[in-house]
Amino acid sequence: MATVSTSDFKGGMKLMMDGEPYNILENEFVKPGKGQAFNRVKLRNLKTGRVLERTFKSGETFETADVVDTDMQYLYNDGELWHFMVVETFEQYGADEAAVADAKKWLKEQDICQVTLYNGVPIGVAPPNFVELKITETDPGVRGDTSGGGGKPATLETGAVVRVPLFIGIDEVIKVDTRTGEYVSRVK
């Protein structure tokens, strides 16, 4: 495994610390006029998602983390694992609940997601930025109201609940931004 020093640090770099994989969010070189240099670094634990700040001596070295983001197609959920496949190679991976986390409410079969593999095991899943999902439950549509003001909750086929405009009804397909969880438009 390659090693990196604090001088190579930049946002997005993935490294091992205390046996856990981390992603560097921010890196600041700190040095008093006459004294020891430090790097003050903000990192995200790729397994838990927890963000923390740590200070390192400039020049300290770390192993890079064997972490790769791969596009995969979501196949199905067997009640325990969520199964994904690399379309080009047909390689399949099963992600547990901790890895899928909040992404699960957006997962629709055949959608392409970004799966983060650490030592070949999925530790994170990012759904597509936009998903198109059918509404399974909501109050009846109010005809004529196209203003979009106010809105009402609607349950989607994956179980996610989003606010939609009043004119949207059951069985309609809508486009949702998964980063904000907000309704974008109706899909005809």
Partner: peptide
């Protein structure tokens, strides 16, 4: 908490680190 690992018993380093942070 990593400060003791960074500074050990070097008093000047301790002062620089605490002051700087």
């Amino acid at each position: 908490p990593e400060a003791s690992h960074l500074c050990g018993e070097d008093r000047a380093s301790w002062l620089d680190l605490l002051f700087g942070h």
